[in-house]
Design a binder for these strands. Sequence first.
DNA 1: TTTGTTCTCTTGAATCATTCTGGTTAGTGG
DNA 2: CCACTAACCAGAATGATTCAAGAGAACAAA
Lengths: 145, 145
Amino acid sequence: MTPSQPPTSAEELRGVGLRVTAARVALLETVRTGDHLGVEAIASGVRDRVGHVSLQAVYEALHALTAAGLIRRIEPAGSPARFEGRIGDNHHHVVCRSCGAVADVDCAVGEAPCLTASDDHGFSIDEAEVIYWGLCPACATASSS
Amino acid sequence: MTPSQPPTSAEELRGVGLRVTAARVALLETVRTGDHLGVEAIASGVRDRVGHVSLQAVYEALHALTAAGLIRRIEPAGSPARFEGRIGDNHHHVVCRSCGAVADVDCAVGEAPCLTASDDHGFSIDEAEVIYWGLCPACATASSS
DNA sequence: TTTGTTCTCTTGAATCATTCTGGTTAGTGG
DNA sequence: CCACTAACCAGAATGATTCAAGAGAACAAA
């Protein structure tokens, strides 16, 4: 064995206490390969890898992997949920008002919460989520014509 | 007349090109009096003031007033939409992970966008939305028992 | 390897927030 | 006061997500 290798998807799943199934391995790899995919796109990616998987299984696996911290769920206002594999660096997102495209924005601080509220109203805050709203290059060009 | 008085709700509606109806006046006042109310709560508040109003009329009026900039819509991940009457100061929100309670957090800058993305990916950004996630005092007490 | 427990997947239906449709009512400018 | 059109109504439809219950599969212990 090669102990210095990065863990396989299967090992990561086992590491967080989840059973290793073909569907979950495929889902984890689909999310990591893809770019802020929605549930349908993830289901389709999983099916490309392992054949038939029900949409409900995808939802359940997404919940499980999100709860385990292997993937992250983002949900810009007005959009269905999207998932990403980049975790642990507390980065943020830019979202296009027109087409919903999402891109990553590095966080200067790198760990949550990266901002401090001026008045926390007694809340114990553990994360500051930032969404930059605007127009992606394509939509900006289209709308200024 | 008293020109220095602040405009009435009716005048504000007319000012943005909307017809003045009892329902819309009541809705505007309900949203401003309330604290990040949801659609059902707003409908209920409007009905307390003017009798029967259909839920569809409430949705339509909320859209109209939001588009006109008289109220603001916020939609934390996993929650139905909420509306607030405080506008024009680009403030942010703290949201309780457990019960969904929302409180306002002043923005140090005061005008959008108050943050600058480290890499905007070519997007033309006009707003930086910040949501602080944590536990409200009540839920923090309940969970640490 | 066999077995048993429990987690995962399946099909199917249900729920919730929101939007759409088509027709009626009522502000508003002329 | 009239006409025009925004605003309203009831009802149905949509889309994302969740719930339910039974069948199947992973894993640990024997």
